[in-house]
């Protein structure tokens, strides 16, 4: 079971690196677009999977451990969000730091709820 999480986490982490690199090339390094896109897309996908299969109570199935806890858990990140928001704030870009946090939180939770609904789940 731990192996499902580990393999999923490895894939998710490499996917995050690819998306971050792509976004840095497309949108520049002035704002952490990569982390934002990663977290928003990961929240939507996690919502869809939770809506489709339901959040497990107690022991989780291998597919849930691989896809949700491993791939999507490893794909999305809070550490980069915290560090990049702190760095924006410390460089005097207070508005950008607050926008980064509120966009991630607001749109992330809304997209997770949308995914949950799209997946056929009831809140």
């Amino acid at each position: 079971m731990l192996l499902m999480v580990a393999v999923g986490g490895a894939l998710g982490g490499m996917l995050r690196l690819a998306v971050s690199n792509l976004l840095a090339r497309l949108a520049g390094a002035g704002f952490p677009w990569g982390t934002l896109v990663v977290n928003l897309s990961g929240a939507l996908l996690a919502g869809i999977l939770a809506g489709s299969f339901g959040v497990p109570h107690g022991e989780a199935a291998a597919a849930w451990l691989f896809l949700v806890i491993g791939v999507l858990g490893g794909y999305t990140t809070v550490s980069s969000l915290s560090l990049q928001s702190l760095a924006l704030w410390q460089s005097g870009r207070h508005g950008a730091a607050l926008a980064n946090l509120s966009l991630t939180l607001g749109a992330g939770l809304a997209l997770a709820a949308l995914g949950w609904w799209l997946g056929g789940g009831v809140l």
Binding site: G13, N39, A50, V55, V68, I69, L72, S79, L81, G108
Partner: peptide
Amino acid sequence: LVAGFCGGFTTFSLFGLETLHLLG
């Protein structure tokens, strides 16, 4: 350490799911 360990250790998607789950 940074993109690998810290990135995989922390998670935003599960934070979102847990928030919705508490609402549910």
